[in-house]
């Protein structure tokens, strides 16, 4: 406490000793304006999108007064309802599978020393950086030509599970990094078997990491487009694919409303995931 207040005072006194030059005085407002431009550039399109989702006009770029008609129409659209259902099925199952497999992978990586462990860990992280298009094509080839699966919801679930495993494993692994292995030893020493030790000690201490990984997996699956586009089949349209096909027919304020809702859902889930990651174990 004392230390912290001390360091802030020293930091605050430093600029006083340094004379502000003319150049500094000119630069300061320029930097401020620059920051404003960046924010406008990043968020203006989104703000416009949200604003027009509440516009009464049937044209996307004309303001026609406030209305929530598009939201009502959205909820009555059976095609969108079906796409939403598909999306939720895919997100739920891929989250479940990826969380189980990813958590087990992270546990194995942190618990055991085995040959090729580093190589395994690196390749595990690879799907995060592999271009989506490469992943999409390779999964399509593999699932259709090698495994001979019919394209549909199951293939989308498999594809989403594949890239989600990496994210879950990375997040759970970060959580395990601060986990004291001696707690498990202490539990076993006191008579707990490996299985009891996991459920009584390990899981209660790392569940925020697991849940956070699961939420991120759900969010990523929710708005995944590129990979889904390759492995989707008839009757297996997810929400992002549905939006894409609607846009091809013209952008209506209904799409604005849908996009706004997806944005809100994503922000909520990601925020929850970050909050869980920050939660301290001790």
């Amino acid at each position: 406490m004392n230390e912290r207040s001390l360091s802030t005072t020293t930091r605050a006194t430093v600029p006083i000793h340094r004379r502000a030059t003319l150049w500094d005085r000119l630069l300061e407002p320029v930097l401020g304006v620059n920051a404003c431009f960046i924010y406008v550039f990043l968020y203006m399109p989104i703000v416009v999108l949200i604003a027009f989702s509440f516009s009464a006009s049937p044209f996307s770029a004309v303001w026609g007064g406030f209305s929530i008609d598009w939201y009502i129409q959205l909820f009555q659209d059976s095609e969108i309802a079906r796409a939403l259902r598909n999306t939720l099925i895919v997100a739920s199952f891929s989250m479940l599978f990826a969380t189980i497999i990813g958590t087990m992978t992270a546990l194995a990586l942190s618990k055991f020393q085995f040959r090729g462990r580093n190589a395994f860990e690196t390749t595990l992280n690879l799907p995060i950086v592999i271009p989506d298009i490469v992943q999409g094509i390779s999964l399509l080839m593999f699932l259709v030509l090698v495994v001979h699966l019919a394209l549909g919801l199951p293939t989308i679930i498999i594809a989403h599970t594949v890239f989600n495993i990496s994210y879950v494993a990375v997040i759970v692994r970060a959580r395990l990094h601060g986990f004291d292995r001696r707690l498990e030893e202490a539990a076993m020493d006191l008579g707990a078997t490996e299985w009891q030790t996991f459920w009584k000690i390990t899981f209660p201490l790392i569940w925020p990491g697991i849940l956070s990984g699961a939420l991120l997996a759900f969010t990523l699956s929710l708005d995944e487009f590129v990979v889904t586009f390759f492995v989707t089949g008839p009757g297996a349209t997810t929400l992002p694919i549905q939006v894409y096909s609607m846009v091809k027919r013209g952008v209506t304020p209904e799409i604005n409303a849908l996009a706004t809702l997806m944005l809100v859902a994503s922000i909520l889930l990601v925020t929850l995931s970050i909050l869980l990651q920050r939660r301290r174990s001790s």
Binding site: D180, L183, E185, A186, A187, D189, A192, L205, S281, S282
Partner: peptide
């Protein structure tokens, strides 16, 4: 024999108390 099957208990240097 695994730790849970031994009639010995260990007091850890770091105590290893269950934080939860």
């Amino acid at each position: 024999a695994p730790p849970y099957a031994r009639d010995v208990n260990l007091v850890f240097q770091s105590y290893a108390l269950f934080p939860h």
